[in-house]
């Protein structure tokens, strides 16, 4: 048997799995949106002319963008401390970041249900301190969804950036300092450019992850704060509007793929090493 034939035989089962059960079904979903008797783009006209649908799309964008920005800021600062921490502390901090990451989305969202609920821990605490007399309704608001999302994605950002920050050679920052750069200048001109590829990878993961999330907006946003993921589910399984659901799916695919492609182009452009 030639090496070429052997190689292809080995990759065939996995390739078939992806082509038959991912590529074809997803393409068929996308195709559904162009088969409307009222016109090829009719479902898209419905989507982009509907106030409600556009509200859902913009809300999802807003939540995803805020989540990404906050996660980048919080994750970068924390990853910096973790990367600089001495051996043992560093391993413990990595364990502390991995643990929530590997704990399920349902469990982690549930925690915020317990904290932010009407009889939740935060309300009870605020009443106990006398700051408020009536419990606040914090659940089913955009704020509660964003807090839970940030909670969900900060560990991912920390772990992505720790690896990147550790990869920046100490010699480089030492050289900058010995050539008279202030710590602020070293950060801006040496560390930040070196960290850009990692920041981009992390941002893409957080943005696409929060843009397409289902469980968190379902639990903490409910009907009132519907996002693209929960909206898709509702269209498909509650109202059985499969064309509508497929249109939402198509918009989600376009947004995530565009983000990934655009950001990886940007990463290549900004990468100081590859030039």
């Amino acid at each position: 048997m030639s090496a070429r034939l052997r190689a292809w035989l080995l990759v065939t089962p996995a390739t078939l799995l992806v082509v038959l059960f991912l590529v074809l079904p997803v393409l068929s979903t996308l195709a559904t949106t162009f088969g409307d008797p009222k016109g090829v783009f009719a479902p898209y006209a419905t989507f982009f002319n509907s106030r409600f649908r556009m509200t859902v799309l913009w809300r999802t964008m807003e939540v995803a963008v805020i989540t990404t920005i906050v996660s980048v800021a919080v994750g970068f600062a924390t990853a910096w401390v973790v990367a600089k921490a001495p051996g043992r502390a560093r391993s413990l901090l990595i364990i502390a970041a991995v643990f929530p990451l590997l704990t399920g989305v349902v469990v982690r969202s549930f925690a915020w249900l317990v904290i932010l609920g009407k009889n939740g821990i935060l309300n009870n605490f605020l009443i106990w301190t006398g700051l408020i007399s009536e419990p606040l309704s914090m659940l089913y608001t955009q704020g509660s969804v964003i807090v839970a999302m940030i909670y969900l994605f900060v560990p991912l950002m920390i772990l992505t950036l720790v690896g990147v920050l550790e990869g920046i050679p100490q010699d480089l920052t030492d050289a900058a300092a010995s050539l008279g750069a202030t710590p602020a200048a070293t950060f801006r001109q040496v560390i930040l450019p070196m960290a850009v590829p990692g920041l981009i990878v992390g941002s893409v993961l957080v943005f696409t992850g929060s843009f397409t999330s289902y469980a968190t907006p379902q639990l903490l946003g409910g009907e009132r704060q519907m996002m693209m993921g929960t909206f898709l589910y509702q269209r498909a399984m509650v109202t059985f509007d499969w064309v509508g659901a497929s249109t939402i799916a198509a918009v989600m695919v376009v947004v995530t793929l565009t983000t990934v492609l655009f950001m990886s182009k940007l990463a290549r452009k900004l990468n100081p090493v590859a030039g």
């Binding site: 397409t212 898709l232 589910y233 989600m252 995530t256």
Partner: peptide
Amino acid sequence: IPEIVLGFSLMK
């Protein structure tokens, strides 16, 4: 591919 899109497509 967004997981939720994958789930929906597999269901169909």
